[in-house]
């Protein structure tokens, strides 16, 4: 006996509702088949990562971001992720925001270093991860400073060191005029040499950071993101202004040391040797700062004139083979 039409409608409606509910569960519940487990981390800057963004481990997608909640008092973000149940953190694991390349959107990257727990802090530091404080399943890393921020810090530091070196050179000059003993003078000169070595090292780093045309496409691309993305926040021209002031200080140092060398013609050999070393160091520093400033100026000018320059890069061609050989 066939059911009456009312029963058929009831059963049909029930089956349709169950189907809709099943579809809704599959579509809306993040992990309906319990294939993932939830891992939480703390980040100081999510850099545009939002719920749904994939989580990668050693190049493979293993989950996605489920929720991001701002923690008011600590001004950090609690990031909840669903990751493959098979994934197991090592004793030294952490989460960081990264991009496959500067032109793609950022994503969460899980890093598992095969290092014993005792050496984890050092290994993490070597990796460039500065942990965000806060209780979470997985340590999160602070957003690393980008090229311009690093450069701004380095230039500021170089300016401070140049000022210290200047003060030391002035003190040496006073000592040479009779205000101090030869022992003190040697000590101050040695300190000045160390200060100048620090300045020289900083200027070398700056020169390396900004030298264009190293042929590394990643470097060019990172310029794109960092120059175009951060240009509104960091004034490249102002940075270059500080750099030029530092250069002027270095030039003043050079003049001071040259003056000291003239005055100390008859003074002790050790002081003289140290001063000559300082003079050489200043020449190198000055050249490094000059090149950095020029590179920064060129980069800034080219980007201002043509923002696509950094993407397109410069066109190069190999030299012709000698004698038409291959």
């Amino acid at each position: 006996m066939a059911p009456d039409s009312a029963t058929q409608i009831r059963w049909g409606t029930g089956a349709a509702l169950i189907a809709v509910a099943l579809v809704a569960i599959v579509a809306l519940v993040p992990d309906p088949f319990f294939r993932q487990r939830v891992v939480a981390t703390m980040l100081d800057d999510v850099e545009g990562v939002s719920p749904g963004v994939q989580v990668y481990f050693r190049g493979a997608p293993i989950g996605s971001v489920r929720a991001i909640a701002l923690d008011g008092p600590s001004r950090t973000f609690a990031v909840t992720m669903g990751v493959d149940r098979a994934w197991r953190p090592s004793p030294c694991s952490f989460a960081t925001v990264a991009s496959a390349n500067p032109l793609t959107a950022p994503r969460i990257e899980l890093v598992a270093l095969e290092t014993a727990g005792a050496q984890c802090a050092a290994a993490r530091r070597a990796y460039g991860c500065d942990p965000v404080p806060g209780a979470a399943d997985l340590t999160g890393c602070r957003r690393p400073a980008d090229l311009f921020e690093t450069a701004a810090l380095a230039i500021g530091e170089a300016a401070a060191v140049a000022r210290t070196a200047n003060a030391m050179a002035q003190r040496l000059a006073a000592m040479l005029q009779g205000d101090g003993s030869a022992v003190d003078m040697a000590q101050v000169a040695r300190n000045a040499t160390q200060t100048l070595a620090a300045l020289n090292s900083l200027s070398t780093q700056l020169d390396r950071s900004f030298t264009p045309g190293k042929g590394d496409i990643a470097l060019t691309l990172s310029h794109v993101r960092q120059a175009t993305g951060r240009a509104s926040e960091i004034d490249v021209a102002a940075l270059n202004g500080i750099l030029r002031e530092t250069q002027a200080l270095v030039a003043q140092n050079q003049a001071n040391i040259a003056g000291l060398l003239t005055e100390s013609r008859s003074s002790a050999g050790e002081v003289r040797g140290i001063l000559e070393g300082a003079s050489a160091s200043l020449i190198a520093t000055s050249a490094n700062l000059e090149r950095t400033s020029a590179s920064l100026g060129t980069l800034s000018d080219r980007l201002a004139g043509d923002p696509t320059y950094a993407i397109r890069g410069q066109r190069y061609a190999d030299p012709p083979p000698p004698g038409g050989q291959k």
């Binding site: 030298t211 264009p212 045309g213 190293k214 042929g215 090149r291 410069q314 190069y316 061609a317 190999d318 030299p319």
Partner: peptide, 24 residues
């Protein structure tokens, strides 16, 4: 020549220094 990219000059245009695409 301060950089690592290979530089070359064509004797016909000695005032123009060029940089190689693939040599470093």
């Amino acid at each position: 020549i301060a950089g690592q990219r290979y530089a070359y000059v064509d004797a016909a245009a000695p005032g123009e220094i060029r940089q190689a695409a693939t040599y470093f």
